[in-house]
Write a protein that binds this DNA or RNA. Structure first.
Length: 944
DNA sequence: CGGATCACG
DNA sequence: GACGTACGTGATCCGA
């Protein structure tokens, strides 16, 4: 019986355009741009690796566009007429795509005057007729027409960037119709990229609705006559011919002449020699190493290879620069040692002292570093030179005998001098976690490095090919080392079946844990040497690195909450919501789930017939606050009740219930976890629980703040930067009036109103405040119009006036955008970079989104830098002032919260104020003062 | 697991 | 030509 054949057809031309935009501008050793080629090569690599898999290819061909002309141009001269020329650094990569394909010894089809889509369609159908399965490697929506099954032979698609299979369900999800109707939908929508007209004013939603309702294009167009009068009806009738032409243009030609028979596409593995040569030529060193490892040929031992030391080829691994990677052996988990005796541990410690740098990782029973038990730690001193030291394995529900291991206190006592030694750098990935675990055992690890934080300092906002832009170890290992780490899930399982790490057998545990340390060591070597090249040393060394132990300390302090008060609030909220729920149901005349926006929308806008319902992307009515407030103004009392219900259930579930649960049983306090890499701008973020969004804006919300309290005899002190972002904007954009106003301690929004309108009253001040924020967030006339409740034209006038009064602002925005477009990143006053890979996107919404974020990032980021510097200096300054009992508890972006003995308030306040006010110095001298507001009280609420 | 909603700066 | 409209976050709930 013949095995099932499976043909993969790779849409090469479409791929490289996407790869080009998603990858950094790498160059090969000769200076030729190769970013897209690199992406293409890794994609072919992945496909080739699937060769042996059940759903993998037996046959494969790459289809390229030879020219963009085809029979469609004969029918419609405007077809693809307005396509811009490809970017100039993509042009030289086209021929290299062919080279790459040949390097993999794969067939490559290019026919003059035939579009790749038609060739793909032809081959796909030909294979399907022979009973083969077909996978089209593309995400082109035109090709989705082909998806489906004929006589057991199926055609599907694979989007390698999203690693997603596209089959009938996915197509239906995207277009709302089955694959064979996609052409009809597209004919209505049109396609600006290919210049297919469609029907003016008809977008994807309308198009798919029309086709779904009427069955096909002709039926939909015929039905127009019978529709009730509307813009849509007019358009369908008027532009019928456009839609019909579009339908013809969108029909794939499935009967092209086949330049090569299908059988020629059989895959017989990839001969390594031509591929190696290609990878070498273009400096794809990380792939080259994987090739060497994969073939395992005896003349290339899988070890440090001095013969390769003369390889000067720049490594175009996707780092955004051409930093050569040191030649390391591939990760080999079989080399790791499981350390089970004190003698062996002492040996490792001795070697670590000699190495002066050790990568370090703790393994624990829980993700919460304030609750977990330490079950082991791992060390790495070089590539494949790593060990795992189990301390508490097999003590859980396991029936096996407890394995031999060093007693925890003995091992910790042995390693404490190493971890605390000034002479040895301790490197971790998210080392803040390990700092906290060990601090609970009386070990204060220093000095430290953190690969996650180093990565963030260089690459915040950068995205790479299909891997994402994160700073987690697995991602960093993939991106920089081309290595796939063992996944925690695979070791411990997931969900209910998950086991704690302490119950993982020692051989598996050693592979996983020591690999973490090994990979951390490698990442450190790689990332740390990139720091100066990326201009990121200053921000890392002066701001982010010194902050790590400070934030760890804050997390360990935690904050006391009044459980009884929260519990009372929970009860009160439960009673009130129950009452309101009944009232809402009564008013609606039926019981439904108020918390379901879908059900609520149907009740309000369908059943009760209220107007003003707007459906969003998902086809659901929006029922958010602004919508409900409008309904309320129309006299819908149910809207007010829903608003109140929403508010109270939010407060209950997110705060009064959750905070009680978050109280640590050992410390009786709530310990948040701050992410040092959470926000692209450099801000911290807070999780588990988030203590940066505790309510303050409403009276009832502030009840929750009252539950944040000091220990007996202490008070809480809240110190916040007043209007720091506007102050920074005034400085950075050099706006004399605003600087003066800040200097004089004026009300800044009032001053803006005076400048804008000549007079200050409630109304003009409120407008000015809105405009000031609009500026900070990157302005659009439509956005501002919405906020001010005026027409976009009027909003534009307001913006014009603002720019005229404050030309520095306009200049700042212009300069910032120019720089970001040219360099790809923005910078804070302290040199923190945030990358904006979509700033030059052809997609307008995407591009404009990036522009707004880019305008805001230097301001928000500088503010973050400043408060971080203040935090780092704070406790030493207080200790210096003889105030060692002041504890720093929280950071909320522009606010620091302290707990201190009542008697210390008077002495501590000026110290805190001074540290915060002078935090930019000496690196940056601001032309505006930083105003600090300080309050104290018996609760966080009272401290404001 | 993504979308909708809403809490904060 | 259509899109969707203020920046940055995280938690919760619903419903597929």
């Amino acid at each position: 019986m013949a095995e099932k054949q499976h043909l993969y057809l790779v849409d090469g031309s479409a791929y490289i355009f996407r790869a080009y935009h998603r990858l950094p501008p790498l160059t090969n050793p000769e200076g030729t741009p190769v970013g897209a080629v690199y992406g293409y090569t890794t994609m072919l690599w992945k496909l080739a690796e699937d060769l042996d898999k059940a759903e993998g290819p037996t046959h494969l061909a790459v289809i390229l566009d030879k020219s963009s002309r085809s029979f469609r141009n004969e029918i419609y001269s405007e077809y693809k007429a307005h396509r811009p020329d490809p970017p100039e650094d993509l042009v030289p990569q086209f021929p290299l795509i062919r080279d790459a394909t040949r390097a993999f010894s794969l067939p490559c089809i290019e026919e003059p005057d035939v579009e790749a889509d038609d060739m793909i369609a032809t081959y796909a159908r030909a294979a399907q007729r022979q009973g083969w399965d077909v996978t089209i490697v593309s995400s082109d929506k035109d090709l989705m027409q082909l998806v489906g099954e004929v006589d057991g032979a199926r055609i599907d698609m694979l989007d390698t960037m999203k690693n997603a299979r596209i089959y009938i369900d996915e197509v239906e999800e995207k277009f709302g119709v089955p694959p064979e109707k996609v052409g009809d939908v597209l004919a209505l929508m049109g396609d600006s990229v290919d210049n297919i007209p469609g029907i003016f004013g008809v977008g994807p939603k309308t198009a798919s609705k029309l086709i779904a309702e009427h069955g096909d294009l002709t039926a939909a167009l015929d039905a127009a006559e019978g529709m009730k009068k509307s813009k849509l009806k007019e358009r369908l009738i008027e532009h019928r011919a456009d839609a019909e032409l579009s339908r013809v243009l969108l029909t794939l030609k499935e009967d092209c002449a086949l330049p090569q028979p299908l059988e020629d596409f059989r895959l017989d593995g990839v001969p390594p020699e031509p591929l190696a040569k290609f990878l070498e030529t273009h400096g794809f060193a990380s792939l080259l190493r994987r090739l060497d490892a994969g073939t395992g040929s005896p003349d290339k031992p899988n070890d440090l290879n001095p013969a390769k030391a003369d390889n000067k080829g720049a490594d175009a691994s996707p780092d955004g620069n051409s930093q050569p990677l040191p030649e390391w052996p591939d990760v080999d988990r079989s080399t790791y040692e499981c350390v089970q005796t004190l003698e062996r541990l002492e040996h490792w410690i001795e070697r670590a002292f000699a190495a002066r740098l050790v990568a370090f990782d703790t393994e624990t029973s829980d993700l919460d570093c304030m609750l977990c038990d330490l079950v082991g730690f791992s060390l790495a001193l070089g590539p494949n030179d790593a060990c795992y030291v189990p301390l508490a394995h097999g003590t859980g529900d396991m029936f096996d005998e407890k394995p031999e291991q060093i007693a925890r206190e003995t091992a910790l006592a042995a390693i404490k001098p190493l971890l605390e030694s000034d002479a040895v750098l301790k490197v971790g990935q998210n080392i803040k976690y390990d700092l906290n675990v060990l601090a609970r055992h009386g070990i204060h690890v220093a000095p430290i490095h953190d690969t996650m934080v180093i990565s963030f300092a260089m690459d915040a906002g950068r995205e790479e090919s299909g891997i994402g832009g994160g700073h987690g170890m697995d991602e960093l290992a993939e991106r920089h080392l081309g290595h796939t780490c063992l996944k925690f899930k695979d070791i411990c399982g997931t969900g209910k079946k998950a086991i704690p790490f302490g119950q993982v057998p020692l051989d598996k545990a050693t592979e996983y844990a020591a690999e973490d340390a090994d990979v951390t060591w490698r990442l450190y070597q790689h990332l740390h040497r990139r720091l100066p090249l990326e201009g990121a040393t200053r921000i890392y060394e002066r701001v982010d690195r010194p902050l790590i132990p400070v934030v760890a300390g804050i997390e360990r302090e935690g904050i006391k909450v009044d459980r009884a008060a929260l519990s009372r609030l929970s009860e009160q909220f439960a009673e009130t919501t129950a009452r309101i729920e009944k009232e809402i149901h009564a008013e609606a005349g039926e019981e439904f789930t108020i918390g379901s926006p879908k059900q609520l929308g149907d009740v309000l806008f369908e059943k009760m017939g209220y107007k003003g319902g707007k459906k969003g992307k998902s086809g659901q009515y929006s029922t958010d606050q602004s919508v409900l407030e409008k309904l309320s103004q129309q006299g819908a009392t149910i809207a007010d009740k829903v608003l109140e219900y929403r508010q109270l259930s939010k407060l209950k579930s997110t705060y009064t219930d959750a905070l009680q649960q978050a109280i640590n049983p050992n410390t009786s306090r709530v310990h948040t976890s701050y992410s040092l890499v959470g926000a692209q701008t450099g801000r911290l973020s807070s999780t588990d629980p988030n203590l940066q969004n505790i309510p303050i804006r409403t009276e009832i919300g502030r009840e929750i703040r009252k539950a944040f309290v000091p220990d007996d005899g202490n008070v809480l002190l809240a110190a916040d930067y007043s209007q720091i972002e506007l102050r920074l904007a005034a400085h950075m954009a050099d706006v004399p009036q605003l600087k003066e106003a800040f200097e004089a301690g004026e009300d800044i929004h009032a001053r803006t109103a005076k400048e804008m309108y000549g007079e200050v009253d409630r109304d003009t001040r409120a407008k000015a405040k809105t405009i000031n924020f609009a500026i900070l967030y990157g302005i659009s006339r439509w956005g501002l119009a919405g906020r001010l409740g005026v027409e976009p034209d009027e909003a534009q006038e307001v913006i014009d006036t603002y720019f005229k009064r404050f030309p520095g602002i306009q200049n700042y925005i212009h300069q910032t955008l120019e720089t970001v477009r040219a360099k790809g990143y923005s910078e804070t006053l302290f040199g923190r970079k945030t990358w904006f890979p979509r700033i030059n996107s052809k997609n307008q919404a995407e591009r404009q989104g990036s522009e707004r974020a880019a305008i805001n990032a230097p301001i928000q980021g500088t503010s973050a830098d400043i408060i971080k510097r203040a935090m780092t200096r704070m406790l030493p300054a207080l200790a210096e002032a003889g105030l060692p009992d002041v504890r720093m508890l929280l950071q909320v972006h522009d606010e620091l919260v302290f707990e201190l003995p009542e008697g210390d308030v008077e002495a501590a306040s000026p110290v805190i104020e001074k540290v915060m006010a002078e935090a930019a110095l000496p690196a940056v001298e601001l032309s505006v003062p930083l105003g600090i507001e300080i309050g104290t009280g018996a609760s966080w609420d009272a401290a404001h």
